Simulated scan of single mutants.
Amino acid sequence: MTIDVVFTKHEVPLDLREQNVVVFDILLATSTIVTLMEKGVQSIYPAVSEQEALEKHQALPKSQLIGEKDGRPIEPYFAPPLPTILIQDHLPAQVVMLTTNGTLAIRKSEGAKRVLIGSLLNNRAIVEVFLQEENWTLVCAGSHDQLAIEDVYGAGQWIAEYLKRRPTTRLTERAEVAFATYNQKSAQREERLRQSMTGRMLIKQGYEDDIAYVAKQHAMHVIPYYERGIIRRTIDEEGI
Results as ranks from 00 to 15, higher is better:
residue 2 T to H: 13
residue 3 I to P: 06
residue 5 V to E: 04
residue 6 V to T: 04
residue 7 F to G: 03
residue 9 K to V: 03
residue 9 K to D: 04
residue 13 P to R: 00
residue 14 L to M: 14
residue 15 D to R: 10
residue 16 L to G: 03
residue 19 Q to G: 15
residue 21 V to I: 11
residue 22 V to W: 05
residue 23 V to Y: 05
residue 25 D to M: 02
residue 31 S to W: 00
residue 36 L to Y: 12
residue 36 L to H: 06
residue 37 M to H: 05
residue 37 M to R: 04
residue 43 S to T: 15
residue 43 S to K: 13
residue 44 I to P: 06
residue 49 S to D: 04
residue 50 E to H: 03
residue 52 E to T: 07
residue 54 L to D: 11
residue 54 L to R: 11
residue 54 L to E: 15
residue 57 H to F: 13
residue 58 Q to R: 10
residue 59 A to T: 11
residue 62 K to W: 01
residue 65 L to D: 08
residue 66 I to H: 04
residue 69 K to N: 01
residue 71 G to S: 05
residue 72 R to E: 10
residue 76 P to A: 15
residue 77 Y to A: 11
residue 79 A to I: 12
residue 82 L to H: 05
residue 83 P to E: 07
residue 84 T to R: 00
residue 89 D to V: 11
residue 92 P to S: 07
residue 93 A to Q: 14
residue 93 A to H: 13
residue 94 Q to S: 15
residue 95 V to E: 00
residue 100 T to D: 01
residue 107 R to E: 02
residue 108 K to P: 00
residue 111 G to C: 14
residue 111 G to P: 11
residue 115 V to R: 04
residue 118 G to K: 07
residue 119 S to M: 01
residue 119 S to V: 02
residue 122 N to E: 02
residue 124 R to V: 08
residue 129 V to S: 08
residue 133 E to Q: 12
residue 136 W to H: 02
residue 139 V to K: 09
residue 146 Q to D: 15
residue 156 G to T: 01
residue 158 W to Y: 12
residue 160 A to Y: 10
residue 162 Y to R: 05
residue 164 K to G: 15
residue 166 R to I: 02
residue 169 T to A: 03
residue 171 L to C: 10
residue 173 E to C: 04
residue 174 R to H: 09
residue 175 A to V: 10
residue 177 V to G: 07
residue 179 F to M: 00
residue 179 F to I: 03
residue 181 T to K: 06
residue 187 A to K: 02
residue 190 E to W: 07
residue 190 E to R: 10
residue 194 R to L: 03
residue 194 R to E: 05
residue 195 Q to L: 15
residue 197 M to D: 09
residue 202 L to P: 07
residue 207 Y to I: 03
residue 210 D to E: 03
residue 211 I to R: 12
residue 213 Y to Q: 04
residue 217 Q to N: 03
residue 219 A to K: 12
residue 219 A to P: 11
residue 220 M to S: 09
residue 225 Y to E: 09
residue 227 E to V: 14
residue 230 I to H: 06
residue 230 I to V: 14
residue 232 R to C: 06
residue 234 T to S: 14
residue 237 E to W: 01
residue 239 G to H: 07
